[in-house]
């Protein structure tokens, strides 16, 4: 019990309070920096944990011949190729400042296999996946947006003003308005909505989030909130 629950709670409390106090107190500022470095290193080692989980899940799928096991082979192959190319900096020239240091060059140049995989596999794949959301957001909005009440109407109207106000369509649609009513042109209306209403709404949300994060973090540091430890059913 002490090893599984008490010591972890004390570690969390110590780590958190050192970071908290180091922001205010000069004497332990260095300690806070050391803790931050340890944090970064553990976070980097956590990638190994992620890789281990990926291997475990995909190897299990392959060994059981589960549905789509062929794609698990593709995942593992691309993972292995990218990892070997990146870790060993295959085909990377050394840095011009330190040419004698074999691994001093950057592995992200498109000349190297790792940079090639990034440039021609990862970038097209990830950016197209994000781009696809344009269709799904539009489709979901078409089905869900109904100006049934004032609140929904405000949301819909603002979305239209922002979308039209930042394209040529907005300029064409309301460009005929005379100078004295130029504030009602969509491009100006969009700026006004962003500067006033959006700023106010965002501020309320940000302040709310900040208060919520501070309260939750304090509960963790004081050992009141222990949900991060799970249910205790660990082996």
């Amino acid at each position: 019990m002490i090893l599984r629950r008490t010591i972890p709670i004390w570690i969390a409390t110590l780590g958190g309070f050192v970071m908290l106090i180091s922001a205010f107190g000069k004497p332990i500022e260095g300690m806070g920096e050391s803790f931050a470095e340890v944090f970064n290193v553990i976070a980097a080692i956590a990638f190994v944990l992620g890789a281990g989980s990926l291997l475990k899940a995909n190897l299990t799928k392959i060994s059981r011949r589960d549905a789509g096991w062929g794609f698990a082979i593709v995942t593992l192959s691309t993972f292995a190729v990218t990892l070997i190319a990146g870790i060993f900096k295959v085909g990377v020239n050394p840095s011009r400042d330190f040419p004698l240091a074999t691994f001093s060059g950057k592995q992200t140049t498109p000349e190297s296999p790792f940079g090639w995989l990034y440039e021609y596999a990862m970038v097209p794949l990830t950016s197209t996946m994000f781009a696809l959301l344009a269709f799904y957001v539009a489709s979901a909005a078409f089905r869900a947006f109904r100006a049934k009440n004032l609140e929904a109407g405000l949301l819909l109207g603002t979305a239209f003003i922002v979308l039209l106000g930042r394209t040529f369509a907005g300029v064409i649609l309301t460009g005929w308005l005379p100078e004295w009513a130029s504030g009602l042109r969509l491009e100006n209306l969009s700026v006004y909505v962003m500067q006033v209403f959006n700023t106010a709404g965002n501020r309320a949300i940000i302040v709310g989030i900040a208060l919520g994060v501070a309260a939750t973090s304090l509960r963790i540091l004081l050992g009141v909130d222990r949900s991060w430890m799970g249910t205790g059913g660990d082996r």
């Binding site: 570690i11 969390a12 958190g16 900040a210 660990d234």
Partner: peptide, 27 residues
């Protein structure tokens, strides 16, 4: 369960950092 110790460190340090950063830059 041995992994709970580093996890505790990560959770604690993140909580400490978040209090400072959110209160300072947001609130």
């Amino acid at each position: 369960w041995i992994a709970a110790w580093p996890l505790a460190f990560i959770v604690g340090v993140t909580a400490g950092l978040k209090i400072v950063s959110h209160v300072e830059s947001d609130l």
